[in-house]
Design a protein around this nucleic acid. Structure first.
Length: 494
RNA sequence: GCGGGUGUAGUGUAGGGGUUAUCACAUGGGCUUCCCAAGCCUAUGACCCGGGUUCAAAUCCCGGCACCCGCACCA
């Protein structure tokens, strides 16, 4: 099998995704709508698996799970700063209709001003001659571009928005959650759900969508110590700090040397790597890059992005931000957000590992797709990520092989529902189909099965088979069954 | 949002004012086959949408939409 990078992996994955049923553009019979994608039969299973891996990793950190509405009243985003800051002050040239951020025009005209409001921008262009970077005409039109969707109907308290992040649902419930956690710190709260952003130019299928899935964790820590737990992870991470060239380090050492600013930041960078690798991101194609000062979000002092290399570009798939939202909500709502500790009352700081589920899914697919020497495609997904754990086939549809195969399928699916049954076409075609959707094992019932109850199990990546008693699988399952461990497939070929 | 390119079955494509719209793969059914998309028979299936020009538009023109590439944007 060739593990070299396939040129145009992106297009290959998008084509496969539609043909086999992972994902495709939404609303296509009505011409489509940019920025929206449907998950199909396989994509739903894959996405569930990705989210489950994340959820289980954070349950092991004793995180609390929460689920809050996607529709959110204005007051929340007023306090968080999104209403004021989550928009662009844009300008348009009346002559050539070039449209971009006002600051892009003013900067290239030699001005350093930053604009928060349409009024301040308008006042500026009236006072100063700002010329179009394209045609040289004077800029006079200034307007704002909201990046949050808002609903035409009012709620009981005014404007309603679709949330651009799930995080605020956690912050505003901080006191309730901390009570449930019996007042302790540090505390982690996690939420998986949809977010909405009015992207100007949605691109590249799952990379930039207007409606997307996110998995966010808010880790509440002591603001001076920012400590979560001893970093006992020993593996290397690749980091790109602002202050030095890229390097491979252990998180513990990077925290001790000050390259990573806090224990909590280092801990969750490493945990994020473990989670992403488990999901099927390739380690060689994953790095953590610290944000430049000028690319930090309005709420963040420090931020590290987990980036996946996709067809030569580094794409953010998870962001780990050091932010301070509780103070804003305390100020605006008047509710105390402080926690009593031995060292007095404190308002916790927040470390936020936030993952884009859709981007992870695309990255996992792009990192998993392989081409066999015979030219056929294999999705080399981790077994626990693959939509189906196994497929069951009769070698041929005769002599009772199909009856026995259906019986084994029926019994097996009682203990593991992620099993696919197929008896159509030739055996080779069925293997190839399962390879292409990442099914790690194919169980085939042949003539010998009729005699002694054994079946063959074929491992996807090696295409090798072992023979095993069917009862062994039915009683113990496939995943984690020592009789079916990968190394069993390494020695013999068939 | 801007500029360029593209749009033909599920997928990849040929064609290019009047065709029965090409081919391959995939898909359904049948035959064959005791292990890797084999073979044979058979069936289903397409010109992105709207307007214009024309006797006639899938084909030419205009507009829209979507996708791809670059720019800008990415809280």
């Amino acid at each position: 099998m060739s593990s070299e990078k396939i040129e145009n992996t992106y297009e290959k994955v998008v084509e496969l995704a539609k043909r086999r049923g992972f994902f495709w553009p939404s609303f296509s019979i009505y011409g489509g709508e940019a920025g929206f994608y449907d998950y199909g039969p396989l994509g739903v299973l894959l996405k569930d698996n990705i989210i489950r891996i994340w959820k289980e990793a954070y349950l092991r950190e004793n995180a609390l799970m929460i689920d809050t509405p996607v529709v959110v009243p204005r007051a929340v985003f007023q306090a968080s700063g999104h209403v004021d800051k989550f928009l662009d002050i844009a300008a348009e040239c009346d002559k050539c209709h070039l449209r971009q951020k006002l600051e892009t025009f003013t900067k290239s005209a030699g001005f350093q001003e930053v604009f928060d409001t349409v009024d301040s921008g308008l006042a500026f262009v009236n006072e100063h001659v700002v010329k179009c970077t394209n045609c040289g005409a004077r800029i006079t039109r200034v307007f704002d571009v909201r990046q949050m969707f808002f609903l035409p109907d009012q709620g009981s308290s005014g404007d309603l928005f679709l949330r651009p992040e799930t995080a605020q649902g956690i912050f505003i419930n901080f006191k309730i959650l901390n009570n449930i956690f019996r007042g302790k710190l540090p505390m982690a709260v996690a939420q998986s759900g949809k977010g909405f952003r009015n992207e100007i130019a949605p691109r590249q299928s799952l990379i930039r969508m207007k409606e997307f899935n996110m998995c966010e964790v808010e880790v509440f820590v002591h603001p001076e110590k920012k400590y979560w737990a001893e970093i006992d992870y020993d593996e290397d991470i690749t980091i790109c700090p602002r202050s030095s060239p890229p390097l491979r380090v252990k998180a513990r050492e990077a925290v001790e040397s000050g390259l990573i600013s806090s224990n909590a930041m280092g801990y969750f960078i490493t945990l994020t790597q473990r989670i992403l690798l488990r999901m099927g991101i390739s380690k060689e194609r994953l790095r953590f890059r610290q944000h430049e000062k000028n690319e930090l979000a309005h709420y963040s002092f420090d931020s590290w992005d987990a980036e996946a290399e996709l067809d030569g570009n580094w794409v953010e798939i998870t962001g780990i931000a050091d932010r301070n939202d509780l103070r804003n909500h305390e100020k605006t709502s008047g509710e105390s957000m402080s926690v009593s500790t031995d060292e007095g009352d404190i308002v916790p700081s927040v470390i936020e590992p936030a993952s884009g589920v859709d981007r992870i899914i695309l990255s996992v697919l792009m990192h998993s797709i392989m081409t066999r020497d015979n030219g056929y495609t294999v999705l080399s997904l981790p077994a626990e990520v693959a939509p189906y754990h196994a497929a069951v086939f009769p070698l041929m549809k005769k002599n009772g092989m199909d009856q026995l195969a259906r019986e084994i399928y029926r019994r097996l699916s009682m203990i593991d529902p992620y099993i696919f049954y197929d008896e159509s076409g030739s055996i080779g075609k069925r293997y190839a189909r399962q390879d292409e959707i990442g099914t790690p094992y194919c169980i085939t019932i042949d003539g010998t099965s009729l005699e002694d109850g054994t079946v063959t199990i074929r491992e996807r990546d090696s295409a090798r088979q072992i023979r095993i008693n069917a009862e062994e699988i039915i009683n113990h399952g496939l995943l984690g069954n020592p009789a079916i461990s990968r190394d069993k497939f390494s020695g013999q070929s068939s």
